[in-house]
């Protein structure tokens, strides 16, 4: 269970996040907002890349910053724009990240192969990353986040640049994984989370607008007495 308490983040006086209070239990959380509302900032705080200006994030009651390594062992993070060593092959890159994640050599080799296979990269695993297409790189980014079979998976627009088939495949992987995990999934593509998210988080004006189930959200806006689609709810929220 992750608890966010009074979290705000300022960049040189500019408030990117203001006073967020909420909780993440098990399940898939779709995080929606227009551009620049603070999704990435929130996820970076959850991944301990940034520390909040005020407030604290707790994992089962313990400050994640205090937990340090112990907390990072539990997470997998996929940044919105992920950097990579251009001269590494996918296999070498994943093995390198596995070392940083503290995974033993034999387990790392096993996990790497399994993930490359699952994400359709096994055939090209020894090609250099600089020869990969955008969508292939995106899948390498997903693979590295899953290496340590994380209990908390933090995904910042993971499907940007994936074709519809890969997107569907990615959804399947997530649903399969989700059991017993907390997945934070930020996206602009509402349909990506509509069917799989347990709850939707919306950010508005740099603060938390709602944390509710998809159905609750759709029922907030009725059209001719019927619940609207998630997409319509999104548009109505930000109009």
């Amino acid at each position: 269970m992750l608890t966010i308490e009074n979290v705000s983040k300022k960049f040189k006086g500019f408030t990117a996040l203001a006073d967020i209070n909420t909780e993440f239990a098990e399940g898939i959380y779709g995080i929606l907002s227009p551009n620049g509302a603070g999704k990435t900032t929130l996820l970076k705080i959850m991944a301990t890349l940034l520390f909040p200006t005020t407030g604290t994030v707790y994992y089962n009651g313990t400050d994640i910053r205090q937990m340090g390594e112990q907390y990072r062992e539990l997470i997998g993070y996929m940044p919105q724009h992920f950097g990579y060593y251009r001269d590494y092959s996918a296999e070498r890159y994943l093995k390198y990240i596995a070392v940083l994640k503290g995974i033993g050599k034999s387990e790392a080799a096993e996990r790497t192969d399994a993930l490359l296979d699952r994400l359709g990269l096994f055939e090209v695993k020894s090609k250099k990353l600089k020869t990969y297409s955008g969508g292939m790189l995106q899948r390498v980014g997903i693979a590295q986040a899953l290496l340590n079979n994380p209990e908390i998976l933090i995904l910042d627009e993971p499907t940007a640049g994936l074709d519809p088939m890969e997107r569907a495949k990615f959804r399947d992987i997530l649903v399969e994984l989700a059991e017993g995990k907390t997945i934070l999934y930020s996206t602009h593509i509402v349909s990506d989370v509509e069917d799989i998210a347990d709850r939707i988080i919306m950010l508005k004006n740099h603060t938390l607008h709602c944390n509710m189930t998809v159905d609750e959200l759709r029922n907030t806006f009725l059209q001719d007495g019927k619940a609207v689609t998630l997409e319509q709810a999104f548009i109505k929220t930000y109009q």
Binding site: K44, A47, T48, L49, E69, R72, E73, I75, G76, Y77, M78, P79, H81, F82, G83, Y84, Y85, R86, I97, V99, L100, K101, G102, G141, Q144, N148, I154
Partner: peptide
């Protein structure tokens, strides 16, 4: 230049260990 630190910072051993 390579922006790899974002992932490296989220691992058990971070870029500060490196």
């Amino acid at each position: 230049e390579q922006g790899v630190y974002e992932i490296e910072l989220s691992c058990k051993y971070t870029m500060y260990h490196l």
